[in-house]
């Protein structure tokens, strides 16, 4: 039972990590930004979900369409006002900008709604599917499936649509892309907004599992980086598998080594991958720059 349950535990939390990592990946892939504020975008997504839930009610999962719209606008505005002025000013500028943004968002939210913990009423949060001795928690299963759908959808979007192709071209080489008549700034804006939307969707899917509060994004920030690097920076499907692998590593360390050493397990695997295969297990990401 322990083995089976450990695998399920790992896969389910891995789905959650993948969900958060996907947004980070698309922003990095196209813009080459390491976004330290992704956790806060997730937090904003959760607040939007919670506010809409209070206003409308119903199942939180039905709130996905309005959350997408709101987060897309939020992402575009954020890009226009904050990120655009820094484009091309180097990696460190991005890092500090997003660090500043994360501090700012966290505290503005606290300023408005206080440091209290909010949650939404839904019976789904304690439901589970029993398979023999092994149980699968329903909200986690939904998040897991959500992650797969998101990754699949995003993949198709990048492969099939014109905007997606333009974004891939920008990711490949923004100078060449602009010679081909592609506006890199537009690709950046859309990539950034999509990254924010992904965080918003993750927000919807996580709200049944976690409290909504200003620091909730901090729970996932570092793990998301690990997942993204593991999958190959900029590789969307890599992020999915990266998430699952980290989930499994964490679950196995927790079950078979020591519960409070789970983060050590994660980061040791991370370092090993960085050293042995810096382009990520699934490659395809940006190689040595």
């Amino acid at each position: 039972m322990l083995l089976g349950q450990t695998i399920i535990n790992g896969l389910m939390i891995g789905g959650v990590y993948a969900l958060i990592a996907v947004g980070l990946t698309i922003i990095f892939g196209v813009m080459k930004i390491v976004n330290f504020a992704q956790g806060e975008f997730l937090m904003v997504g959760m607040y939007v979900t919670w506010l809409l839930y209070k206003a409308i009610g119903g199942s939180p999962y039905l709130l996905i369409p309005p959350v997408i719209v709101i987060m897309f606008i939020f992402g575009l505005l954020l890009y226009k006002i904050v990120v655009k002025p820094v484009v091309g000013k180097g990696d460190t500028a991005y890092i500090l900008l997003t660090v500043g943004l994360s501090i700012f968002l966290q505290n503005v939210v606290q300023l408005i709604w206080g440091a209290n913990y909010f949650s939404i009423e839904t019976t789904i949060k304690t439901e589970a599917i029993q398979m023999g001795d092994v149980s699968i928690q329903l909200p986690r299963l939904i998040a897991f499936i959500g992650a797969i759908i998101l990754v699949g959808g995003l993949h198709l979007f990048l492969k099939k649509t014109d905007i997606g192709k333009a974004m891939r071209a920008t990711a490949e080489n923004s100078q060449v892309a602009s010679l081909l008549g592609i506006n890199p700034s537009r690709s950046f804006a859309i990539a950034f907004a999509i990254g924010v939307v992904m965080a918003g969707m993750a927000g919807v899917l996580l709200t049944p599992m976690f409290y909504v509060y200003p620091r909730v994004g901090q729970l996932f920030g570092l793990t998301a980086f690990v997942v993204v690097v593991l999958g190959g920076l900029g590789n969307i499907t890599g992020a999915l598998f990266g998430g699952l692998i980290i989930g499994l590593v964490e679950a196995f360390t927790a079950s078979y080594v020591a519960l409070d050493l789970a983060p050590v397990g994660t980061f040791v695997v991370f370092l090993l991958v960085l050293l042995l295969k810096p382009e990520g297990i699934f490659g395809g990401g940006v190689r040595k720059t």
Binding site: T6, V16, Q218, F220, E250, S255, L259, A262, P263
Partner: peptide
Amino acid sequence: NQSYPQGFTDASSLVTTVKQ
């Protein structure tokens, strides 16, 4: 008798251990 990291994201492993 087990401690866990503050602010963890998944209690499944913890609960699995205790249940076992």
